[in-house]
Design a protein around this nucleic acid. Structure first.
Length: 426
RNA sequence: GGAGAGAUGGCUGAGUGGCCUAAAGCGAUCGCCUGCUAAGCGAUUGUACGCCUCAAAAGGUGUACCGGGGGUUCGAAUCCCCCUCUCUCCGCCA
């Protein structure tokens, strides 16, 4: 959420910035509710002050044996007025809170204005498209031909958008998770954490999935728990409602988790293969930083994700999301798009974002620069490093051979139990 | 799933309706003292929101906060109700 005082004092700037995102936000109602809240607050607090003083007087009189029935009668009506005001204050704050929680973040000044992904500027690219002396296949065909991906049985066991991995396919998925975690922990300075895969609604609200995007989530019936759509949620919430020491910043975490997405509204999109699943694996990097260093850390975060693709030898490009394509909570986002020859397309494989204080404010994650100084909100960042299922897709499609086998990239060989080429077994 | 005990400030822990502006201790910060260190002495000590002064930093002032929500009362950390979490024991279990 945005700083209410900042919105109050910079209403036109906020309006302009939000319009660039293409979001319609009722800022007039926000201003009115904010005004109303402060008016009520002033009145009710003055009454409380009176009541506190008079109650003290009643206590004093009682002790000295004096009568105080006149004061008690007077305070009776003051108390009922306080009760009424509290009621309307609560209503107003609920309205204001609801509005505040649905206003998206303001894009950073370096983010270009645009409508959708076609306007995202290219930041850099690495490697080149591999050439084939045969027609490269899509990963769903490669995977079924090698008997390592079983879409039909995944659908039988659960339903559409669930996949069974078998043999070297399952091994490849697991190898990638370990390869990514090891690189980020030993080379990039991240601390590995392993979190719950379900979180409560408070955590979902803190990172921005709730209240606006509930339809994208799986909820556990009869509880307040949701399946996580990304490890960003539990990992960012590790420090919810905490005041951190400046000396502990920045904090870098990396986590493997399964991710669960309802994919409401994506019917008919990417129905074949591993690209869009209800359940997928991801290694996620999360940072907590001081405000002045968060944009440097965003660059490092993106390069940490890119390093995985470089080591795997997969051609990719990095784009900067334009205002119209930016996620709800983000101020600036880089998407890494890996080349997928079987689909003749670049596909998103990582998304690295700086949320500035947007999540920290919702989550109450603060720090203190030195003893006695005021607390400030940290900046939070996160990025995939990487989406594992999509990395499997990239490896299968980029390393496929004419005979249908798939060569294992060198960087992954130490994790593959001696398998350096995936061939059909049985 | 059953039974019981708990939740108070950075930490430990007292507090069963008004002298709570939450005792005391520990820690931390600053100062004094002192060859050094330790000890000792003194002071300070949270968060949020509103209002005022203000360019800002900062200051002043008010309100709220003793796990969360409701209630009783002129007045609630304290009494009542509901919920959450933690711990112990029993049951079940990878």
């Amino acid at each position: 959420m945005l700083d209410i005082k900042f919105v109050r004092e910079n209403i036109d700037l906020v309006r302009t910035k939000l319009e660039e995102r293409g979001d319609a936000v009722d800022l007039d109602q926000f201003v009115a509710m904010d005004r109303r809240r402060r008016d009520i607050l002033q009145e009710v607090e003055a009454l409380r002050n009176e009541r506190n003083n008079v109650s003290k007087e009643i206590g004093a009189r009682k002790k000295s044996g004096q009568d105080s029935s006149d004061l008690i009668e007077k305070m009776g009506s003051v108390s009922s007025r306080i009760k009424d005001l509290d009621e309307s204050l609560k209503e107003t704050e609920a309205l204001l809170g609801g509005l505040t929680m649905t206003i998206p973040n303001i894009p950073h000044a370096s983010v270009v204005c645009g409508k959708g992904d076609e306007d995202n500027p290219l930041v850099r690219q690495w490697g080149g498209k591999p050439t084939f002396d045969f027609e490269p296949k899509a990963h769903w065909d490669i995977g079924e031909d090698l008997n390592i991906l079983d879409f039909a049985r995944g659908a039988k066991v659960t339903g559409a958008r669930f996949t069974l991995y078998r043999g070297a396919g399952a091994l490849l998925e697991r190898a990638l998770v370990n390869f990514m975690l090891d690189l980020h922990t030993t080379r990039h300075g991240y601390t590995e954490v392993f979190t719950p895969f379900m979180v409560n609604s408070e955590s979902m609200t803190a990172t921005g999935q709730l209240p606006k995007f509930e339809e994208d989530l799986f909820k556990i019936t009869g509880t307040d728990y949701y399946l996580i759509p990304t490890a960003e949620v539990p990992v960012t919430n590790i420090h919810r409602d905490e005041i951190l020491d400046e000396k502990d910043l920045p904090i870098f975490y990396v986590a493997y988790s399964a991710c669960f997405r309802a994919e409401a509204g994506s019917y008919g999109k990417d129905t074949r293969g591993l690209i869009r699943q209800h359940q997928f694996n991801k290694v996620e990097m999360v940072k907590f930083t001081r405000p002045e260093e968060s944009y440097d850390e965003l660059e490092k975060l993106a390069s940490n994700a890119e390093e995985i693709l470089k080591r795997l030898g997969i051609h990719f490009r990095t784009v900067s999301l334009c205002t119209g394509d930016l996620g709800f909570s983000s101020s600036k986002t880089y998407d890494l798009e890996a080349w997928m020859p079987g689909q003749n397309a670049y596909r998103e494989i990582s998304s690295c974002s700086n949320f500035e204080a947007f999540q920290a404010r919702r989550a109450g994650i603060r720090f203190r620069r030195r003893e006695g100084s005021k607390v400030e909100y940290v900046h939070t960042l996160n990025g995939s490093g990487l989406a594992v299922g999509r990395t499997v897709v990239a490896i299968l499609e980029n390393y496929q051979q004419k005979d249908g086998s798939v060569i294992v990239p060198d960087a992954l060989k130490p994790y593959m139990n001696g398998v350096d080429r995936i061939v059909r077994n049985k």
